[in-house]
Computed example of a mutant assay.
Amino acid sequence: MAEGEVRKVDTAAGKISLKHGEIKNLDMPPMTMVFQVSDPALLTKVKAGDKVRFTAKQVNGAYTVTSIEAAP
């Protein structure tokens, strides 16, 4: 799982903007970027400013958050 902070939640578009640390499975350095979500219900769990832990994968060429939870 990667750690990050929610910058913006766009439920209409099914996207979330995250400022995140390194995502090892995607070989991605820390940055802020917009991700698709695999399930729109994930967006109801978080709001802008929340510290989170999440997993992301590349699905059909798009970086997609597949799980997300509030960081302890």
Rank of each mutant, 00 (worst) to 15 (best):
A13L: 13
A62M: 14
G61H: 07
I16R: 02
E3F: 10
F35G: 05
A70P: 10
A71V: 08
Y63G: 00
Q58F: 00
F54D: 00
L26I: 10
D27I: 01
A56Y: 08
V37W: 13
I68A: 05
R53S: 14
V65H: 03
G14H: 15
T44H: 03
D50L: 12
I16C: 03
Q36T: 04
M1A: 00
D10A: 06
F35T: 00
T32E: 15
L26P: 12
D27C: 02
E69M: 11
I68S: 04
T55I: 11
A70W: 07
K47E: 09
S17M: 11
G21M: 07
P72E: 00
V9S: 07
P72A: 06
P40V: 02
L42H: 11
T55H: 13
A2M: 04
P30I: 08
N25A: 06
I16M: 02
L43H: 01
K19T: 14
L43M: 03
D39W: 02
P40E: 01
V34W: 12
A13T: 04
E5A: 12
Q36W: 12
L26C: 12
L18Q: 06
M33R: 15
A2P: 04
G49F: 08
D27W: 07
D39K: 05
V34R: 10
N25G: 05
I23H: 09
P40D: 04
A70V: 06
